[in-house]
């Protein structure tokens, strides 16, 4: 067996392994997340299992307890609402009335315990009302660090 052939065989093994990883990932990502109504429809069978749930953060449902970093809110798909609890810092774009995908387990008592929050953003992009050309933005944030937070 020449080393070239060995190399080819090795390449094939690596390619097969990679395709398996991608295939498994793709199969999982076909149903990337379930909606609150799909999860709740499963009833008791869903308890204790890991899920990825996607929906809108219900307006007025977000409750932050800063000292303990506890976060609670509700996710909805318009038909059902799922209460979620999370400990940690959510991403910048996480807010009421916006989309979010959470990873975690469904506790039997109807609450979803999230270990990860991902913010889903829309495909819309537009400048804020106080928009200024990019170079002014750049100068401002570079000269006065910390003032960039004015964006929100």
């Amino acid at each position: 067996m020449s080393w070239r052939r060995k190399f080819l065989l090795g390449g094939l093994v690596i390619a097969a392994a990679l395709s398996w990883v991608v295939y498994a990932g793709l199969r999982g990502s076909m149903v990337y997340f379930v909606t609150p109504s799909e999860l709740l429809a499963q009833g008791g069978a869903a308890a204790g299992k890991a899920y990825r749930v996607g929906g809108m953060v219900v307006e007025g449902s977000l409750d932050r307890d800063l000292p303990t970093l506890q976060l609670s809110f509700a996710l909805t798909d318009g038909r059902a609402t799922l209460p979620v609890r999370f400990r940690g810092t959510p991403p910048d774009l996480f807010a009421e009335g916006r989309g979010a995908v959470v990873e975690g387990t469904y506790a039997g008592d109807g609450v979803f315990l999230a270990s990860t929050i991902m913010a889903k953003h829309s495909e819309e992009y537009h400048p804020p009302a106080d928009a200024e050309p990019g170079y002014k933005e750049l100068m401002r944030t570079l000269l006065k660090p910390g003032e960039g937070e004015a964006a929100k």
Partner: peptide
């Protein structure tokens, strides 16, 4: 030049949207 000097900051994401 356009990406950093002309395009406005995004209302929702802020400047990080310039990665787009």
């Amino acid at each position: 030049g356009a990406a950093f000097g002309w395009a406005p900051r995004d209302a929702v994401q802020g400047n990080v949207q310039r990665i787009m």
